[in-house]
Nucleic acid binder design. Structure first.
Lengths: 256, 256
DNA sequence: CGCGATTTGTGCACGTCTTCACAAGCGCCT
DNA sequence: AGGCGCTTGTGAAGACGTGCACAAATCGCG
């Protein structure tokens, strides 16, 4: 089994071996492992232990081992994981052996930044098209790509074999764009617009909402503030008593 | 309990009543509910049922009710939730009654976009400072704010009462910036750099990695492709290792 | 050749999150 | 006033994810 056959000549069409169905939580962590592994490879490491890799990826080592075990991974007991092999494995499972083409719709503030973000190119993707509904933006060149009108999507999808659509439009336009993407056969969408998209079964949508992230942080911030104001007795989840609590400056180390 | 005490005159300093400790999963959904509620309010709705709100927020209605019940919410059986009241409740719990000041470090490609993103301002935050380590960027004005050098952070933190730090630097600089933020007392960080930050206990970090989102989509795309290629019989999740797979067409049966 | 040091892979128990299903509560209509 | 339909809030069951702890496997060394 030490036979080390590397996965995919990307080559031709759909005949791909089936994938194990991984737990979603695992899938969400694999990219992080992959990044950490690339760092290790660049630093010259040939093998890495679960302990080392998990530290680099910011997770628990047991979790890491279980995750890797799900993809039938090849670690060596007493030694660790072969960095290069593991990179191959994960890239294969994530479908990164082919460089997928991404269409970015909405070249406003955020869209501009995304179009110029080199993290996509360096991590398995190719921004293949920029689209916008605003005629005054059409024709603009960003990072070597010319912005085209969103109505050209059908043509673009075919020309470039678009696999993933990224929506960076205002919320009001997002659903319409999503429909257009679905109509041309895109089944994976990354949505930056602050709204819920409805799409047919079989289409995957992931949402990134920057304000939501801040609001979650705000909650914890609020919570920490309300805790440090208190004398910290036994830990019962106290339910919002408007009561006394005065002190403002007595903040001290929070309990573990 | 029908007593309806509404939360916060934002007014003065830190004396805030303690918060119930909500499940993380719930906290992560509250902002979405809030956004949906604002939409409903703008559309003139005064009340909304759990069914209606859950649809607008893209979740299951039972989940929504349980989430709201955690914050001791005030719905009326047979009627639904009072939109305005619920907005107040959620904003209070999330700590949005005060407009928190955000410091954005790293005014490159992405940082520029974030600095210009009006979703922050409209949803409870104030970008109070732009910082960068590159002297050639210092002094630039973006959206009415002048970029200052990151070494001025201590002064800025005090002047603006920074509550949250956003890191939009290259990965190599991120840890250093995080340390600086922590040093000036920031306990909530939103990290856009593709790397793991280590911070002391009590500091919250949330990470947004755009490439990771795409990679997760890529997995599902890959998976869908490998499924459609097959005649779909019932079966075990076979373990797809690159190992043997000589034959390209003998693949059979993936599970549902 | 065998032994000990090391590290993976995993069974198991625990906690968290989700979902169903239904009793309790509320308003409206008669 | 009483009953009916609608909607919330929640108990309980199940699915899912996590982390411990240890057996199994491998390497290196004497």
């Amino acid at each position: 089994m030490s036979q080390h056959r590397h996965p995919g000549a990307p080559g031709s069409a759909g005949a791909v071996p089936a994938l194990p169905d991984l737990p979603e939580a695992t899938v969400a962590r694999l990219p992080e492992y992959l990044r950490a592994l690339h760092n290790l490879a660049d630093a010259g490491h040939e093998t890495v232990s679960s302990e080392g890799l998990s530290a680099a990826a910011g997770v628990n080592s047991a979790k890491l081992r279980k995750d890797l075990s799900h993809l039938g991974s090849y670690g060596t007991r007493g030694v660790g994981y072969d960095v290069a092999l593991l990179i191959e494995q994960i890239e294969y499972v994530l479908g990164l052996t082919q460089r997928r083409a991404v269409a970015l719709v909405g070249v406003g503030n955020l869209g501009h930044a995304l179009a110029g973000y080199d993290g996509f190119a360096s991590r398995g993707f190719r921004i293949a098209a920029l689209l916008d509904a605003d005629p005054s933006r059409v024709g603009e060149e960003i990072n070597g790509l010319v912005v085209r009108h969103v109505d050209e999507l059908p043509a673009v999808a075919v020309e470039e074999s678009i696999a993933i659509g990224v929506i960076a439009t205002p919320a009001a336009a997002a659903q319409r764009v999503a429909d257009q993407l679905v109509a041309v056969g895109v089944t994976s969408i990354l949505n930056f617009a602050p709204c819920v998209l409805s799409v047919p079964e079989g289409v995957d949508v992931r949402k990134v909402d920057l304000a939501i992230e801040l609001q979650i942080l705000s909650f914890h911030e609020h919570r920490k503030a309300s805790l440090t104001a208190l004398p910290a007795t036994g830990g019962s989840a106290l339910t919002a008593l408007p009561g006394g609590l005065a002190a403002t400056d007595t903040q001290e180390a929070i309990g573990t």
